[in-house]
Design a protein around this nucleic acid. Structure first.
Length: 482
RNA sequence: CGGGGAGUGGCUCAGCCUGGUAGAGCACCUGGUUCGGGACCAGGGGGUCGGAGGUUCAAAUCCUCUCUCCCCGACCA
C-alpha cells in the first residue's frame, strides 16, 4: 500500500498512515468511533504509563466513576450544559422501558464527580482530593477525524478539589506542565503552554489552559487542557466544607485531560511519506532484527547470532523483535517495519556474521551504520536517545520556522487566505488581540482561531489589539486548528 | 445542515458513457524455485456489483426512489 505524499494531500496522507494496511496498523473508524488496533493501542499504553507515572508522583489516585450520568446533573451548571448539550448521546430506554429520567453517556465527568464530592467532603481535613480517571467518553461531534475527533474516545480526566483558590490554581498549572513534559519529553512534540481565550475556554470553567502543538502542515492541535473550575461546580453540586475557622465554604476545583488525540498528534508531528515514525520512548518495539540468509547453513549461523542479539537487547530492557518469518523476503520486512515506525532496524546477514558486524538503520533519518557485533547492545541505547532528541529538535525547528509575527488584521487575513490553505503552509501567527469573544469571532471568520495566550511571553510585551486598538499585555497565538 | 465524491471478492480499484454469462492488482490456499530494500512460476478458493422499484428478451451498466460512507465547511478535544 502506497502512502499519499504529505505535500500532495495532508489529510489523505494522515489517513493512509492511520488506517490502511494490515492488522498491525493503528486504527480504523466505524460510525465515528474508532477501532484502535494492536499497534496503535500499544502506543497508547506507553503514553498512559508516562502520564500515570507523573500523576502518581504528584499525589493523584486513580478512580472510576459511572459511564451513565443522570441528565439532571448536567443541567446543574448552566454554562456547562449549554456547552455540552448539542453533543450528548442520551439513553432514554433501558431494560425495555422508557426511563423516568434519561441518562447521558458521559461527555466528561465533572458533574457526577461533583455529586460525589459533595457527599465525601465535609471538612478542610478532607482536602485536597486529587483524583484521576482513565475512561472512555462520548461526544457526538458533527464531523469526526481519526484520533483527533472521534465520537467515542479514550482519555484521562483529573478532578481535584481544594480548600483555596490559590491551591487550585497551582494544581491547574502544575498539571499543564505535566502535560507539556509528556508531550515534549515522551512524544518529542513541542508545545506552547498558554491560557485559552474566554471564548475558547471549557464550558463551566473560570479559566482554561492548554498546550498547543504544531502539526507538519502548520495547523495547531490542542493537545491537552487544564481547567480552573473555580467554585462553579462546587456551588452547582453543593460541595461545601468547614474551614479551620469553622466557616462553611465551597471547594475550589480543577479538571484536566488528555486523550487518544495525542496519538493523532504524534503521527502528524513525526511521520513521513514512508509511514509512521515513533519516538523511541513511545515505540512498543524499539528494535527489529531482520535476518538475511539463503541456504540452511547460513540460516543456522545468522539465526544464532540474531537470537543472541535479541536476547541481549531484551534483557537490557530494549524491546526487540526478531522477524524470523520465512514467508517474506528481507526487503518486505524492511518496508513493513518502516511503515510501522520502529525506530531502529538491525540487518544481519551471512556477510555480517562472517565479518562479525551488524547494520543499524535509523527510521527517522534513514541512515545506516555498520557496527561490530560486540558493540551493538551498547550502541543502541544512545542511538535511541539520539533519535528521541533529534525528533524533538526537528519538531522544535519546524515550529519556530513556521511561527511569525503580525501586526494588523489585514496581514492576518492575508496569511489565512484560503488560497494558501492546508496544503501550502499554515503558520502560528503571534498577534496582539484583546481577550474578548468579539475579537475571537473576527479570527473565526478567517477560519482560524485564537489558540492561547502563552504563559511565557517570548515576544515584545504589550501592544495594540489588531481589532480594537486597545493595549493588551502580550501577543496571542492564532492558527488554523484541528 | 450546505458543497463535493464514492458504494463492485478481505483491501485498492477498473468496467457504466455505447445494456449481452463479473474483471485486475494486492492479500489468501497448494506445490516448487527464491531471499542484502516490497520475489517468481504453476495451480486454486472467494463477489446475488449498497438496497428497493422500474424500463428491457437481457441491467453492475439506463430511469426513479432510498440507505450508507468519505472529503471540504459550520460545531468541537
Amino acid at each position: 500500500m502506497k502512502i499519499t505524499p504529505r505535500s500532495q494531500d495532508f489529510s489523505a496522507w494522515y489517513q493512509d498512515i492511520v488506517m490502511h494496511g494490515d492488522m498491525a496498523e493503528p486504527a480504523e473508524i466505524v460510525k465515528g468511533c474508532m477501532v484502535i488496533k494492536a499497534n496503535g493501542y500499544a502506543v497508547w499504553e506507553l503514553l498512559q504509563a508516562e502520564l500515570d507515572r507523573r500523576f502518581k508522583a504528584t499525589g493523584h489516585k486513580n478512580v472510576y466513576f459511572p459511564l451513565l450520568i443522570p441528565e439532571s446533573f448536567l443541567r446543574r451548571e448552566a454554562e456547562h450544559v449549554e456547552g455540552f448539550s448539542p453533543e450528548l448521546a442520551v439513553v432514554t430506554i433501558a431494560g425495555g422501558k422508557k426511563l423516568e429520567e434519561p441518562y447521558v453517556v458521559r461527555p466528561t465527568s465533572e458533574t457526577i464527580i461533583g455529586h460525589f464530592f459533595s457527599r465525601w467532603i465535609q471538612s478542610y481535613r478532607d482536602l485536597p482530593i486529587l483524583l484521576n480517571q482513565w475512561a472512555n467518553v462520548m461526544r457526538w461531534e458533527l464531523r469526526t477525524r481519526m484520533f483527533l475527533r472521534t465520537s467515542e474516545f479514550l482519555w484521562q480526566e483529573g478532578h481535584t478539589a481544594h480548600a483555596t483558590q490559590e491551591e487550585a490554581r497551582e494544581e491547574t498549572i502544575r498539571m499543564l506542565h505535566v502535560y507539556a513534559d509528556v508531550a515534549e519529553m515522551a512524544m518529542a512534540m513541542p508545545v506552547i503552554r498558554g491560557v485559552k481565550s474566554r471564548a475558547e475556554k471549557f464550558a463551566g470553567a473560570d479559566r482554561s489552559f492548554s498546550i498547543e502543538a504544531m502539526m507538519q502542515n502548520g495547523m495547531a492541535l490542542q493537545a491537552g487542557t487544564s481547567h480552573e473550575l473555580g467554585q462553579n461546580f462546587g456551588k452547582a453540586f453543593n460541595v461545601q466544607f468547614q474551614s479551620k475557622e469553622g466557616k462553611l465554604e465551597y471547594v475550589w476545583q480543577t479538571s484536566w485531560g488528555v486523550s487518544t488525540r495525542l496519538i493523532g498528534g504524534l503521527i502528524m508531528t513525526h511521520s513521513d511519506d514512508k509511514g509512521l515514525v515513533l519516538p523511541p520512548k513511545l515505540a512498543p518495539t524499539k528494535v527489529v532484527i531482520v535476518p538475511i540468509f539463503r541456504q540452511e547453513a547460513e540460516k543456522i549461523k545468522v539465526m544464532e547470532e540474531a537470537n543472541k542479539l535479541a536476547e541481549t537487547l531484551n534483557a537490557k530492557g530494549i524491546s526487540t523483535h526478531l522477524d524470523a518469518r520465512e514467508e517474506h523476503s528481507p526487503g518486505h520486512k524492511f518496508f513493513h517495519w518502516e511503515k510501522l515506525g520502529v525506530p531502529v532496524t538491525l540487518e544481519l546477514g551471512p556477510r555480517d556474521v562472517a565479518a562479525g558486524q551488524a547494520v543499524l538503520k535509523r527510521r527517522d533519518l534513514g541512515t545506516k551504520e555498520t557496527l561490530p557485533l560486540g558493540t551493538v547492545a551498547d550502541a543502541i541505547p544512545p542511538m535511541l536517545e539520539n533519535i528521541q532528541t533529534d525528533l524533538l529538535a526537528a519538531a522544535r525547528k519546524r515550529m519556530k520556522d513556521n511561527t511569525i509575527v503580525a501586526n494588523s488584521l489585514e496581514e492576518v487575513t492575508k496569511l489565512f487566505d484560503n488560497e494558501t490553505g492546508e496544503k501550502s503552509g499554515n503558520k502560528f501567527v503571534m498577534v496582539h488581540i484583546k481577550d474578548d469573544p468579539a475579537c475571537d469571532a473576527k479570527i473565526k471568520d478567517l477560519k482560524a482561531s485564537v489558540r492561547c495566550i502563552p504563559l511565557k511571553d517570548e515576544y515584545d510585551g504589550p501592544g495594540k489589539c489588531i481589532i480594537t486598538g486597545e493595549t493588551v499585555p502580550q501577543r496571542s497565538v492564532i492558527a488554523k486548528a484541528y
